[in-house]
């Protein structure tokens, strides 16, 4: 009897230590979950930035197409006929529509124009594709691709 009691002594301490350790483990995993969640919110900002930059570049591409549509039409025809791709390449050579940004964040972007079914001097339909990759300081990358079809028709001057 005395032997059994001596063996039981200290059991409460062991149980409490086990419980306390268990609760601490739960607490640590809880903190880790919250830390990961905070990181995800930072990621969201990268995704928002990539999307907004892509939208802005799409507007600039629409401006270029509206200003100089004819050269795109002939450059694209020459490109798909296999005659020459150089004029089509020149049309895509603007630094504002394809290149890199170093400030206020790092980004790489590219814009392409693709002629859809069109009849010169009557209508022109173009698919503008903007690809953006934003890099966060922590190394995470966020890609965004926007495709927009622009339709134009020639109207009489008066």
């Amino acid at each position: 009897m005395h032997y059994l009691d001596a063996k039981r002594s200290g059991m409460a301490l062991i149980i409490v230590l086990t419980l306390a350790t268990g609760i601490l483990i739960l607490g640590i995993s809880y903190i880790n979950t919250i830390r990961k969640q905070s990181g995800r919110n930072t990621i969201e900002l990268g995704a928002i930035q990539a999307d907004l930059l892509a939208e802005g570049l799409t507007q600039i591409a629409m401006l270029k197409f509206k200003e100089i549509p004819g050269p795109l039409y002939y450059a694209y025809i020459a490109h798909v006929k296999g005659n020459t791709s150089q004029p089509y390449s020149v049309y895509h050579g603007d630094a504002i529509l394809g290149g890199k940004l170093d400030s206020p964040f790092n980004a790489e972007f590219r814009t392409t124009f693709q002629l859809l079914s069109s009849k010169m001097y009557q209508d022109m339909n173009v698919k503008i594709t903007v690809e953006v990759e934003v890099s966060r300081p922590d190394g995470e990358k966020y890609q965004r691709l926007i495709e927009r079809t622009v339709s134009g028709s020639r109207r009489p001057a008066f």
Partner: peptide, 17 residues
């Protein structure tokens, strides 16, 4: 804002649209 392009000589005798 600078935009590059190559125009076309549409009045060239050999030009095919």
């Amino acid at each position: 804002v600078k935009f590059k392009y190559r125009g076309v000589g549409v009045n060239r005798p050999t030009f095919k649209a």
